[in-house]
């Protein structure tokens, strides 16, 4: 589904990814953990196509096709979704309006007609209720004045609406209390399916108690330095990153 081969990337003169290789198959949930500055968020931005980063070497394939030459919106309609660590505010644009524009862009790219308003409302109601998102919140401008929990729930709602094939969650647990974390995790778990994969980027083990990964990777200094099962996350939680980081340096 998602194949990252020997990816090197830089921002300005600083090389951040130094030969990252990762294969994610349909139905799998991968966790990527690592210390601050390891390149976790950079990876998510590069996959989504943010322009500040320059890929100097390597390849990224989505369903067998290279996506590195695609615009961010083309990657989106090809099935790649990024749940932002810090969702962006768009003043004056109602969340509902934003959802409709996004969904219609996806439908248009697939050659489908726009949904009628009642069809659209029904669809939104279905996904928002599960995430405790009220209609009042849907009328508010995108992410403006949302609490940390509301922002993350809104990200998952957008994910549920757009039905991507690969979901990248960038530090989705940051800024969440335990109750909010559960709601978000349930939202993600409800979307798990044999033809959809997840890459969960996180600093802490606690999110992985709720979204249980199939495979855990340790990212350090721009490379995957260790891969294992869920027990790897527990070990990291107990012993810290130091040993792995030292391995990588050696």
């Amino acid at each position: 589904m998602l194949e990252i081969k020997n990816l090197h990337a830089r921002i300005g003169d600083r090389e951040i990814l130094k030969g990252l290789t990762l294969t994610v198959n349909p139905g799998e949930v991968h966790a990527i953990m690592g210390p601050n500055g390891a390149g976790k968020s950079t990876l998510s931005y590069i996959l989504a196509g943010k322009e500040d980063y320059e890929v100097t070497e390597g390849e990224v394939l989505l369903n067998g096709e290279s996506i590195l030459d695609l615009e961010p919106n083309e990657r989106s309609v090809a099935g790649l979704f990024l749940a932002f660590q810090y969702p962006i505010e768009i003043p004056g644009v109602a969340t509902m309006t934003f959802l409709k524009a996004a969904l219609n862009a996806h439908r248009k790219a697939k050659g489908q007609d726009e949904l009628t308003t009642p069809e659209f409302m029904k669809l939104v109601k279905g996904v928002s209720e599960k995430l405790n998102i009220t209609s009042e919140m849907l009328r508010r401008p995108v992410n403006v004045g949302f609490s940390g929990g509301e922002k993350k729930r809104a990200e998952i709602m957008q994910m549920a609406l757009l039905q991507p094939s690969i979901c990248i969650l960038d530090e989705t647990d940051s800024g969440l209390d335990i109750d909010a974390l559960k709601v978000v995790a349930e939202g993600v778990n409800a979307l798990r399916s044999p033809d959809r994969a997840f890459v969960v980027i996180t600093h802490y083990q606690r999110l992985l108690d709720h979204i249980v990964p199939d495979i855990v990777h340790v990212l350090s200094d721009g490379r995957i330095v260790r891969t294992g099962g869920p027990e790897l996350a527990l070990d990291l939680e107990k012993n810290g990153y130091a040993a792995y980081v030292a391995d990588a340096a050696a």
Binding site: A48, I90, G92, A105
Partner: peptide
């Protein structure tokens, strides 16, 4: 901001539509 544009693009909106959406939000009042 680049971030606003990137966010809209990540949700599938073409750049031109994204700008129009952000501007329409700005002038809503």
């Amino acid at each position: 901001s680049d971030d606003q544009l990137f966010y809209c693009l990540q949700r599938g909106l073409p750049q031109e539509e994204a700008i129009a959406l952000i501007v329409n939000g700005f002038v809503k009042d």
